[in-house]
Amino acid sequence: MGRYVIRRLLQVIPVLLGATFLIFSVVFALPGDPIASMAGDKRMPPHIVAELTERYHLDDPFLVQYWHYLSGLLQGDFGETFAGGGVSEIIAGKFQVSLNLALTALVMETVVGVGLGFYAALRRGRAQDTLVLAATLLLISVPTLVTGFVLQLLLGVELKRSTGIDFFPISGAFDGWRSYLLPGFVLAGTSIAYLTRLTRTTLAETLRADYVRTAVAKGLPRRRIVGRHALRNALIPVVTYLGADLGTLMGSAVITETIFNLPGLGQELFRSIYERQQPVVVGIVTLLVLVYVLANLVVDLLYAVLDPRIRYE
């Protein structure tokens, strides 16, 4: 297993280098002069311009700038904004919101997706199975943009209007965990559908596996055959999907954050693009790439824990 871990760790490095380089070069190509836009309508005194240019290495060639950024990143420093604040501090609070949102989505995805998939797999070919499949098709097809507003309208506005139940906040992160319920579900939508399908297929496949036939031949109770012998095997791809999805969920939350006014990384990135705060833009995307890569790394290691065939390779 040691060698597997090391090999997997080494694979992370080129991906991180490549991704940060790509992001940095795109941001480098962004039009506009950050210093000029900082000053707004006024003209900036030349000596300040020179000082800022020096401080942010703006005159250096692209590769040198990238090098400065990368070495800072290695020390856990995401750089400074042009206003002088640390990017790390700006990101931290937003990261918390995005993480809460993604984790809420992940929990919903696990409960609903695995549950539905399990239910459908045990009723393969019957009406309930077809119904579940149709539901996943809808969940995959209806864009976040639509589910977001429709759920906001139905559960946030109409429910309150008609019954007085005010359980689902529709804007902002002021109500603790409840703030994340609706956006969490909206964000999880497609993943719920994919996970349902994945759970259904893998469980149905494992239920046909030879070792399940052996378990039947051993005279084990049905509950144990499904719940232990089949499920333990079927969960391997499911768990790995879930782990990898954390990174995806965090990176794809912009629209959900916008609909529900959640001050997360997506919103911050959006604002930073408009305000030409290149260091923040690079910082946020780099952070999300890191989350994605680390989540995948953890998943691969988890895979080895779950599947002894990999562990002892």
């Binding site: 030879d210 052996t214 051993k218 084990l220 779950l306 599947d307 002894p308």
Partner: peptide, 18 residues
């Protein structure tokens, strides 16, 4: 399992890998 037991052709796939 208790009174009638069975063994199969391909033991690798007949045993649970995990």
């Amino acid at each position: 399992g208790r009174r009638i037991a069975m063994i199969f052709q391909d033991a690798l796939s007949a045993l649970n890998p995990v």
